[in-house]
Amino acid sequence: MLTRYSAWAHARLFKALESLPEEALARDGGGAGSILKTLNHMHIVDRIWQANLEGREHGYTARNTPTLPAFAELTVEQRSIDTWYVDYAAGLSGEKLGEVVPFTFVGGEEARMARVDMLLHIVNHKTYHRGYIAEMLYRDKVKPPTMDLTVFLRDVEPDAADA
Rank of each mutant, 00 (worst) to 15 (best):
T3R: 01
T3C: 10
R4L: 07
R4E: 13
S6K: 08
W8L: 04
A9K: 05
K15E: 12
L17W: 01
E18C: 12
L20R: 08
L20V: 03
E22R: 11
A24W: 10
A24S: 13
D28R: 04
G30P: 07
G30H: 09
S34A: 13
S34Y: 12
S34T: 05
S34I: 06
L36T: 03
H41T: 01
H41G: 03
M42F: 08
V45C: 14
D46W: 10
I48A: 00
A51D: 04
A51S: 13
N52F: 13
L53K: 07
E54H: 10
E54Y: 10
H58V: 05
H58K: 03
Y60V: 02
T61C: 10
T61A: 14
A62Q: 07
N64Q: 11
N64S: 15
T67E: 15
A72R: 12
V76N: 06
Q78K: 15
Q78S: 11
R79F: 01
Y85D: 02
G91F: 07
L92T: 02
L97Y: 14
G98I: 01
V101G: 06
V101I: 13
G107P: 00
E109V: 09
E110N: 08
M113D: 12
A114G: 12
R115Y: 12
R115S: 09
M118E: 07
N124W: 02
K126A: 10
Y128Q: 11
G131Y: 01
G131R: 00
G131C: 01
Y132W: 13
Y132Q: 14
Y132I: 13
I133E: 03
A134G: 05
Y138H: 15
Y138M: 10
R139E: 09
D140Q: 15
K141S: 13
P145K: 01
T146W: 10
V151L: 15
F152V: 01
R154A: 15
D155T: 07
E157I: 00
A160F: 15
